[in-house]
């Protein structure tokens, strides 16, 4: 059963301008990999060459940041909504 993935404005051009995608996958990793297969430009923006989540990207399952769940191995209930947002950080240093 596909899950809904919500993309931030910044990533929409890499997905043909779509704001939401319907993607098959039982875990966050499977969903990101299927998205990357369909939209190769998205892949490099989300995952590092080692297959880890890029540090400038936050991925949420429903209301929770996957870094506080099981990361990319977080399992997805059938009605899950996966949201992606840029990590917002910086500082005086």
């Amino acid at each position: 059963m596909p899950v809904e993935v919500r993309l931030p404005t910044l990533l929409r051009p890499a997905a043909g301008g779509q704001a939401t995608l319907s993607v098959e996958g039982a875990t966050v990793r499977e969903v990101l990999e299927s998205m990357g297969a369909a939209h190769p430009e998205l892949s490099s923006q989300l995952l590092t060459d080692d297959g880890a989540l890029h540090r400038f990207v936050n991925v949420y399952v429903d209301d929770d940041d996957v870094r506080y769940l099981d990361g990319l191995d977080t399992k997805l209930p059938g009605d899950a909504v996966v949201s992606i947002l840029p990590a917002v950080a910086g500082g005086a240093r």
């Binding site: 949420y60 209301d63 940041d65 870094r67 990590a87 005086a92």
Partner: peptide, 19 residues
């Protein structure tokens, strides 16, 4: 969430809620 005098990181869940 960086809790630093020289760095900041917006709390990710607050960002999602604001969005």
């Amino acid at each position: 969430v960086a809790h630093s005098a020289a760095l900041y990181t917006v709390e990710p869940r607050a960002h999602l809620r604001a969005d």
